[in-house]
Amino acid sequence: MDCELLSIAKSLSPLVEQEALTTERDGTLSPAVVDAFKESKLFWMLVPKDLGGLGTDIVTSIEVLEEVTRADGSSGWSLMANSGTTAVAAAYLGERAVDAMFGGRDLPIAAGMLGPGGRSVEVSGGFQGSGKFAFGSGCAHADWFGAGMFVLDDGKPRLLADGTPEVRVCFVPKEQVNILGGWDVMGLIGTGSYDYELPDQFIARDSTLERSSTEPLRGGPVFELGLPGFACAGHAAMALGLMKRALQEIARISSAKKRPGYPSTISEYPLFLKEFGLNEAAYWGARAYVLDVFSDAQDTVNAEQPLSPEQRARFRQSTTWLHQVAADVVSFCHLWGGSESIRNPSVLGRCLRDMYVATQHVFVDPITVVDATRAILPRWNISEH
Rank of each mutant, 00 (worst) to 15 (best):
S308H: 02
G27A: 11
P216C: 13
L65Y: 03
S255P: 09
N302Q: 06
S83D: 02
G73H: 01
S212D: 12
L209T: 01
P216G: 11
H323M: 14
M149P: 03
G104H: 06
G118E: 04
I109G: 01
P221G: 05
D328N: 12
Q324F: 14
A142N: 03
E268G: 11
G163K: 03
L273C: 14
P157G: 06
E280F: 08
T320H: 09
W144A: 11
Q324N: 14
F202E: 02
I109W: 07
K132V: 14
D154H: 07
V177R: 11
A281W: 12
K156F: 09
D50A: 03
R25N: 09
G52Q: 04
A372P: 07
L377Y: 12
S331Y: 09
A140P: 04
R25L: 14
E166N: 08
G125Y: 02
I8L: 05
L188W: 05
M238Q: 11
S61E: 10
D143A: 08
L348Q: 14
F202Q: 10
G126D: 06
E24D: 15
I253W: 07
S254E: 04
S137C: 11
V329H: 04
D26Y: 07
D200L: 15
V98G: 01
Y262E: 13
G190F: 02
E304F: 12
G115I: 13
D299F: 01
W183T: 11
E210C: 12
S255Y: 02
A134P: 00
G76L: 08
D153K: 14
S267M: 00
R158P: 00
D153C: 12
S264H: 10
F145E: 08
L307V: 09
E175G: 13
V167C: 06
L21H: 06
V34G: 01
A288D: 13
V34F: 06
E166S: 12
Q201P: 03
